[in-house]
């Protein structure tokens, strides 16, 4: 029984961070139709920035975030403005290929600077544990979960009740009508992409404690993010957070209850089935 709770708790904690990763991608897809296959490499980039800041100034990832958020946001804005925006009107697939190229550049840029050995970024919370009955929780996971949900709620409130948030939703629902409202659609797209990449800086810091990092991990993060976004119905906010939990829990359950190989297959199997039978995602929408 305790094994079940342990797996469940771990799944929820990791899953909430996955949800946060995916919110950024969902927002970008909703506003500009771009599916960013370099998403995971941007997470890598943020993680390695934390590593560099630790090596240079012994900064804890939780502190480094104050630096990585603005830097990642700025990188996001520049990438959209100079690489993705010129692709407006191109076939969707060309954009996919461009982001695949970007993924190679980021991944190997990191490899060239940091080398291929797995690395760790120490953090004060790394070895702290919280013990609740039979369940042992890592403090880093609890913090990750709390921050991820807080950020998700913050984003939700921002989308609902600020003019910037409403302009994002307007562009998503009808870009032409949004332009007629005096919304600068191009600017909203740049800012949303920057926001989506900025969020990754936070997610990276949350994932870092206790997780070894290596430059080649990007594609795996991209795939996990894609799984979550698809499960959530691409642009459905609540659905995406839910999708993160489903993937997190199924991953944790899979490794506990089925053999390692099969356990790793579970999320993909779920993904393929959902894609085929519920392409609109897990949640039901009033249509």
């Amino acid at each position: 029984m305790s094994e079940l709770w342990q797996a469940l708790a771990q799944g929820v904690f990791i899953g909430s961070t996955y949800g946060l990763l995916a919110l950024g991608m969902g927002l970008v897809y909703g506003v500009s139709g771009v599916v960013n296959f370099a998403h995971g490499d941007f997470i890598s980039l943020a993680m390695f920035m934390c590593l560099a800041l630790f090596s240079a100034f012994s900064l804890d990832p939780y502190v480094s975030v104050l630096i990585t958020i603005p830097v990642m946001t700025a990188i996001g804005a520049l990438v959209y403005r100079f690489l993705l925006r010129p692709m407006v009107g191109y076939k969707f697939l060309m954009v996919v290929q461009l982001t695949l190229g970007l993924s190679l550049v980021l991944q190997n840029g990191i490899l060239m600077i940091f080398g291929g050995q797995p690395a760790r970024t120490p953090s004060i919370v790394e070895s702290k544990l919280i013990i609740l009955g039979d369940v042992v929780l890592r403090l880093a996971h609890v913090i990750a979960c709390a921050v991820a949900f807080a950020m998700a709620i913050g984003l939700y409130v921002m989308l609902r009740s600020t003019d910037f948030g409403r302009s994002i939703r307007a562009v998503h629902q009808n870009a032409h009508a949004a332009a007629l409202m005096g919304i600068d659609v191009g600017r909203v797209q740049v800012m949303t992409f920057a926001l989506g990449i900025g969020i990754l800086a936070v997610a990276a810091a949350l994932l870092l404690p206790g997780t070894p990092i290596q430059p080649t991990q990007g594609l795996q993060y991209t795939v996990i993010t894609l799984l979550v976004v698809v499960l959530g119905g691409m642009t459905n906010f609540v659905g995406i957070m839910l999708g993160g939990l489903v993937i997190g829990i199924s991953e944790a359950m899979g490794t506990v209850y089925v053999s390692d190989t099969l356990g790793r297959l579970v999320p993909y199997a779920i993904f393929v089935l959902i894609m085929l039978f519920r392409p609109q995602g897990l949640t039901w929408r009033a249509s």
Binding site: D163, R166, S167, R169, A170, Q173, N174, H176, A177, A178, L180, M181, G182, I183
Partner: peptide, 18 residues
């Protein structure tokens, strides 16, 4: 071309976005 998933109020607020 109203914004279908937003409330009437939000649609009106967007009208006064500039």
């Amino acid at each position: 071309l109203v914004f279908p998933e937003m409330s009437v109020r939000e649609n009106l607020l967007l009208g006064g976005f500039c």
